[in-house]
Amino acid sequence: MAGDDDGSSSVTLVNKLDFGDPLYLHARDTTGTALVSIKLKGTENYSVWSRAMLLTLNTKNKKGFIDGTYELYLGQIFSNNYVIVWQELKETYDKIDGSITFNLHKQINSLTQGGSSVSEYYHKLNTLWKQFDALVKLPKCVCTANADFVKHNNVMKFMQFLMGLDEVYQPIRSNLLMTDPLPNVKTAFAVISREESHRNFSGHTVG
């Protein structure tokens, strides 16, 4: 009877876990399901991979298992193992050198639309920008210099976006460059996207 009580108690305990409990497992939480689509390659994409992993774990209410904030009632040893693995990954791959930054910067400046849609081109470029910003990790401050840097960074992204556009957008690109003050890259993307839609619509109408 004692054994039966223990077994039934364990089952009941698991069944009573609500969605907010870190031990709760959804039907989609299986060992064969990848948490993130990004594959860890090493130092070149560790920053992006770890951010994606943290975001996913946080969404699933499992982040505490790797940052040490949550202790399993089944035993501290399990929690410690996950924390150690996560820390070892960080110590191994969270290393930035000049070559990684150089290669990423080169990808940004060499990326072109190449006949793809404006949205596809912008998405690729925006992803590279986010990776670069995550690698650089500039110090944060509330001084006026920070606002100046943000403004300068936005101008650089605006220029990089325009440089990679197909030549068919040269006239509207010239108009954007003559705007004072210069628009941000999101505004430029919206303008170019409208021009693309207009061209596609005109092409279909003529056809």
Rank of each mutant, 00 (worst) to 15 (best):
M1W: 13
D4P: 05
D6G: 06
G7R: 10
G7V: 12
S9Y: 13
S9N: 05
N15I: 13
K16H: 14
F19W: 12
P22Q: 13
P22F: 15
Y24N: 00
L25W: 14
H26G: 05
H26W: 11
H26P: 15
A27K: 14
D29M: 07
D29P: 02
T30D: 09
G32S: 11
G32K: 07
G32M: 08
T33V: 15
L35M: 09
S37T: 06
K39W: 05
K39T: 09
K41D: 13
G42T: 14
E44R: 00
E44G: 01
E44F: 03
E44L: 03
Y46S: 02
Y46R: 03
V48F: 00
V48S: 03
V48Y: 00
R51A: 06
M53A: 00
M53G: 08
L55T: 15
T59W: 08
K60I: 14
K63F: 08
G64M: 08
G64I: 13
F65H: 09
I66D: 05
D67F: 01
D67N: 02
T69A: 00
E71N: 05
E71H: 10
E71S: 12
L72I: 05
L74R: 12
I77F: 15
I77T: 15
F78N: 05
Y82V: 08
V83A: 06
I84P: 07
V85F: 02
Q87Y: 07
E88H: 05
L89A: 06
L89M: 05
K90Q: 07
K90E: 13
E91Q: 12
Y93P: 02
D94V: 00
I96D: 09
D97T: 00
G98F: 12
F102V: 13
N103Y: 03
L104N: 03
H105I: 15
K106L: 04
I108C: 01
N109E: 10
L111I: 02
G114P: 10
G115H: 11
G115S: 04
G115C: 04
S116L: 06
S116R: 06
Y121W: 07
Y122R: 05
Y122N: 09
Y122F: 14
Y122Q: 09
L125F: 10
N126E: 07
N126T: 13
T127W: 11
K130E: 10
V136G: 01
K137M: 02
L138T: 07
K140E: 06
K140D: 04
C143P: 13
T144V: 09
A147I: 02
F149R: 11
F149C: 03
F149K: 04
F149L: 11
V150S: 10
N153A: 01
V155I: 10
V155P: 01
F158A: 00
F158Y: 07
F161G: 00
L162W: 11
L162Y: 11
M163H: 11
M163F: 07
L165V: 04
L165Q: 01
L165H: 07
E167I: 13
V168E: 14
Y169R: 01
I172C: 06
I172D: 03
N175H: 13
N175M: 12
L177W: 08
M178F: 15
P181E: 02
P183F: 14
N184Y: 15
V185A: 02
K186R: 12
K186D: 15
K186E: 15
A190T: 13
V191L: 01
V191P: 05
I192Y: 01
R194N: 11
R194C: 04
R194T: 12
R199K: 10
R199Y: 08
S202D: 14
S202W: 15
G203A: 12
H204G: 14
V206D: 13
V206E: 14
